[in-house]
């Protein structure tokens, strides 16, 4: 068998450098279908809109490219507003995910082994079901005549005088709905890295601090929380980055008057057919996402170097 097809393959790889093909196949693929498209987007963002198909071209005389689209980006309050709303929604959702996800992750990490796997499974299970359907599930709950909205309205009305009582709570197509569904959809992304971090913490440190007379909240504040910061940052990035570029959630439950930036890109591209503008908005969004990550990894590398330098 070894001298059959597999043998020939082995021979070929051995002679022609299988090592090279292992590197070059994924390399060529990613350059062709990821890097080149992205360069096309950058190029398009410097072009002008035309009435041809595809609706894009370049200026007729030197320097052929224009920064007009980027000028509009900062000049038109629609775009600035959309960026700000995206950052705001993503930041609030990240903070809420942390507030709810941290105690959940801590509780799972402190459960005994057999419980831990079941609880983790229950966290991951919604992640395997369709993202779209999870957003849809909230559309059913938030509608003005759903049981959830009715119960919530009754609850809120308990605290209000009868004259100001709500008939229903207007939840659909608001920024509140966007943040709520963002938290719902991205909560597992916060819990999993936090759990991975908290599970590996040395429990004896906590016991030592308790033995030395620390109160539980002091132990948490002085030991558990500082040691879990890598998990907090990893979870925060995993929630914040996809949340700020989200398209499905703002389209289904968000308000059309205050769109998030993902929806603006999609609308510019498909509805307005202004490809250069959509490209410019996309490039700016990416810069906005990548810059804080680069600053973070720069400081982390410096801190690492500083620690290694110590005797």
């Amino acid at each position: 068998m070894t001298y059959g097809v597999t043998g020939m393959l082995r021979q070929w790889f051995h002679l022609k450098g299988w090592r090279k093909s292992i590197i070059s196949i994924p390399y060529i693929w990613l350059v062709a279908f990821f890097l080149v498209p992205f360069i096309i987007v950058i190029g398009m963002s410097l072009g002008v809109r035309t009435s041809t198909s595809p609706p894009i071209g370049f200026a007729a005389e030197w320097p052929y490219v224009t920064l007009e689209n980027y000028g509009r980006l900062f000049g038109d309050s629609l775009y600035v507003r959309a960026y700000l709303i995206s950052i705001y929604n993503a930041a609030i959702a990240t903070a809420l995910c942390l507030l709810l996800g941290y105690p959940m992750a801590l509780c799972i990490a402190r459960s005994n082994r057999s419980w831990r796997n079941i609880l983790l499974m229950l966290i991951i299970l919604p992640f395997w079901t369709s993202f779209l359907l999870r957003v849809y599930a909230w559309m059913g709950l938030m509608g003005s005549n759903s049981w959830f909205n009715k119960d919530l309205t009754a609850f809120v009305n308990l605290f209000l005088p009868a004259s100001q009582a709500f008939k229903f709570i207007p939840m659909m197509n608001t920024n509140f709905a966007v943040v709520l569904v963002l938290v719902y959809s991205y909560l597992p992304f916060m819990i999993l890295p936090l759990y991975a971090n908290l599970e590996n913490l040395d429990g004896t440190l906590n016991e030592a601090a308790m033995d030395l007379g620390s109160r539980p909240y002091q132990v948490f504040k002085d030991i558990t929380l500082p040691l879990s910061m890598p998990g907090v940052i990893a979870g925060g990035l995993l929630v914040f980055i996809p949340a700020s570029g989200e398209l499905i959630i703002p389209t289904l439950v968000g308000s059309a008057a205050d769109p998030m930036i993902g929806r603006v890109i999609s609308d510019e591209f498909s509805a307005a057919r202004n490809w250069p503008m959509a490209s410019a908005v996309a490039v700016a969004l990416l810069v906005m996402l990548v810059l804080p990550m680069m600053v973070y990894s720069y400081f982390e590398a410096r801190a690492q170097a500083g620690q290694d330098g110590k005797p």
Partner: peptide, 20 residues
């Protein structure tokens, strides 16, 4: 190139693939 698609918002990946 290996890490970039993980943080790229899907809408940008979609648009750039279509343009390609």
């Amino acid at each position: 190139l290996v890490t970039a698609p993980l943080i790229m918002p899907e809408v940008i990946t979609g648009i750039s693939s279509l343009m390609l």
